[in-house]
Simulated assay, not measured.
Amino acid sequence: MECGIVTVDLHGRNTYQAKVTVDALLRRAGAGTYRLRLIHGCHQGTALRDFLQVEYGHHPQVKRLLRSPDGGATDLVLREMTE
């Protein structure tokens, strides 16, 4: 784990399981976490990638989404936490 970046492998999970995982990560993200790197792969279809875009593209904690150049991961860049 890089400082401030939490990486999670979502391979083998369906969209419901991915949502539960990502929602838990967002709840636990502290002030030192600025990015969630979600590895979903790209060779078994795009269901998880597309789901992440739709579900978290306009989430209040997410500043923007970034896709890896190979399409196998999506980074959720988080907004700064305010108390």
Rank of each mutant, 00 (worst) to 15 (best):
E2H: 15
E2M: 14
G4P: 07
I5E: 07
V6C: 02
T7I: 11
H11K: 12
R13Y: 04
R13K: 11
N14Y: 01
T15I: 07
Y16L: 15
Y16P: 13
Q17W: 02
Q17R: 12
A18V: 02
K19N: 07
V20F: 07
T21C: 07
V22M: 11
A24F: 12
L26F: 10
R27P: 05
R28A: 15
A29Q: 10
A29H: 09
G30A: 04
G30H: 05
A31Y: 08
T33A: 14
R35G: 12
R35S: 12
L36H: 04
L36F: 01
L38C: 08
H40M: 05
H40I: 02
C42T: 06
C42F: 05
Q44K: 00
G45A: 04
T46M: 09
T46D: 09
L48P: 00
D50C: 03
F51T: 01
L52W: 01
L52C: 05
L52P: 02
Q53I: 10
E55K: 15
E55Y: 15
Y56I: 05
G57D: 04
G57Y: 04
H58N: 14
H58F: 14
Q61L: 14
V62P: 01
K63N: 14
K63F: 14
R64F: 06
R64V: 02
L65A: 06
L65V: 07
L66I: 14
R67T: 04
S68M: 08
S68A: 07
P69Y: 08
G71V: 03
G71Q: 03
G72N: 04
G72W: 02
G72P: 06
T74A: 05
D75C: 05
D75F: 03
V77G: 10
V77F: 12
L78A: 07
L78P: 10
E80H: 11
M81F: 12
T82N: 13
E83V: 07
